[in-house]
Simulated scan of single mutants.
Amino acid sequence: MLIELSIIFLSIALAVTIFLALCYFGLFETISVKTGESPYDFGGKKFIYKVYNANSASIGSNFTRLTTLLYPFKDATLVPVLITQPIGSKSTKSLLGVLFEHNNDKVEKMLLSIDYKIMTLPKVNHVVSATFTNKGSISVAIALKRVYPVITEYIKENKLCAYPSIEIYKGDVIYFLSPLSKQQDFFMNEVSSESSSDDGDSDGEQVCDDQYSRDPEDSDDDNEVPSTASSVASSSSFEQLIADDVSTTTKNVLLQFHATNQYILV
Rank of each mutant, 00 (worst) to 15 (best):
M1K: 09
I8Q: 01
L14A: 13
V16L: 14
T17N: 01
Y24N: 08
Y24K: 09
I31D: 04
V33I: 03
K45A: 00
A54R: 14
S61I: 10
N62L: 08
T64Y: 08
T64F: 11
R65T: 14
T68K: 12
F73L: 13
D75E: 09
V79N: 00
I83G: 13
K93M: 11
L95R: 01
L96F: 14
V98F: 07
E101R: 11
N103L: 10
D105L: 00
D105P: 00
M110H: 13
I118Q: 13
L121G: 01
N125D: 14
V127N: 11
T131K: 03
F132Y: 15
N134G: 07
K135Q: 15
I138V: 14
L144I: 02
R146D: 03
P149F: 06
I155L: 06
E157F: 06
N158E: 08
I166S: 06
I168S: 05
K170T: 10
V173L: 09
L180V: 06
N189K: 06
S193A: 15
S193W: 08
R214N: 04
R214H: 11
E224T: 15
S227Q: 14
F238M: 04
Q240H: 05
L241Q: 13
L241Y: 13
V246S: 01
T248P: 07
F257E: 08
N261S: 15
N261E: 12
Q262V: 00
I264D: 12
V266E: 03
